[in-house]
Design a protein around this nucleic acid. Structure first.
Lengths: 221, 221
DNA sequence: CGGAATTTTTAGATTAACCTAAATTTTTAT
DNA sequence: ATAAAAATTTAGGTTAATCTAAAAATTCCG
């Protein structure tokens, strides 16, 4: 397997994201804008990427990412998102502080490193922004997120994001120990006020109000 | 503060290591050999580094690293060694597998990341090879390492390296939970066979034979 | 439809980091 | 001390990734 330079990886990632929005053709200007480069630079790079077989390209008609290209892009995205989980869950960064550091870490080359990191983080499926993490084969969960308060008693779910991202709410969560990746088991629900009794990470139970469970986004397995 | 490119950081690190062996002048060929580049490339880069003030340089007479250069080099070395500790202590890499990955990680730019990592690793003073980790000011422990078996009852020491690095011994250590960075308190020593009772990380006590304590290199605080 | 506007590509430069080959300086050894 | 050997620098070139300016293709719309 050939290797891409940092710059090539960044272009490919941009093209992947721009084409993930349903659209097939990705245009030069869009790539240039996203990467803060000039369209002329994009033209050059696209030619190079198409020679490497990671995109197909007809002059003046935009780019399409190939299957090989998609796989490469997803591998970089996997690394990026796993490092974000590391930064937030282990180094106590806030989810909105981690992007720039992860942009650097995503280019580190070592698949063993990534599989060890994945294991260390306990195989998270979503990053701290709630975006799904591709697995080693490039497949990512397309499970829809649901609101915790809507689930019935007995369901097990994984916390993947918060609706309210204000400091007050996040601070509350900090104190409860609830965080992205926590496994939540719904032990009981109180009819009269909508509060629920949950078990977190098969470890400790707690009671949370409806106001809280309305703001927790989860996926069920 | 100006920033150095990855290549510049690598040159500076090489020059630092080559001049750390007591010698003042570092010669071009030595740098080229260490970095696996050609002497001509080294000449180019040295000119650039001296323009930036991180080395001083008289044509045909070798390089000297400046105080600013030393500080920059030590910062890269600090990052390298902290990442090595992370890889070994947290991701279960073996100490002889981590160099290449740390060579990449050492260039990640974020001092906040490094201070958080340092804290997460509980402020290690030595890397998995037993080399001292510079602190944020570029100062590193020059405490001599001693052999655990030579210390008296009551001493507290930090495990920094092993003399025997064979698989059998390392495997034994794995099972005891002893690892680089462990804090060892000498509770008792048995005269008749030289074995000792130790408390590890103020947590669990165990008995180790003289053969074992002869192979553990520690520093006392 | 056909010109104007927009998008994209090409042409030609620049910078960083390397290289080889040749020139120059220093060191070594007889 | 001086010629040969070794070390170092210079000269000139390459590649990757960028840029600006200009040319070419496509799209939009009156």
């Amino acid at each position: 397997m050939f290797e891409l330079s940092f710059a090539e990886e960044n272009y490919l990632k941009a093209i992947y994201h721009l084409s993930a929005d349903g659209k097939r053709q990705v245009n030069t200007n869009a790539i240039a804008e996203r990467l803060e480069t000039r369209p002329a630079s994009v033209s050059d790079m696209i030619r190079k990427l198409s020679e490497k077989g990671v995109v197909t390209y007809v002059k003046y008609q935009g780019v399409n990412i190939t299957e090989v290209g998609k796989k490469k892009a997803l591998w970089v995205i996997r690394k990026h998102r796993l490092w974000e989980v590391f930064l937030v869950n282990k180094l106590n960064f806030h989810w909105d502080e981690v992007h720039d550091i992860a942009e650097q870490l995503e280019h580190i080359r070592s698949s063993l490193l990534i599989s060890r990191l994945d294991e260390f983080l306990e195989f998270p499926k979503f990053d701290p922004h709630g975006d799904p993490i591709p697995n080693a084969e490039g497949i990512m969960s397309s499970n829809p997120m649901t609101i915790l308060s809507e689930l019935p008693i007995g369901k097990t779910a994984e916390l993947v994001s918060m609706k309210d991202t204000g400091a007050v709410f996040l601070n509350y969560l900090d104190r409860t120990g609830l965080k992205i990746g926590s496994k939540i088991n719904i032990v009981d629900k109180m009819e009269f006020d909508g509060s629920m009794e949950i078990m977190v990470d098969q470890d400790k139970t707690m009671s949370i109000s409806k106001q809280v469970s309305d703001n927790l986004l989860v996926i069920t397995e």
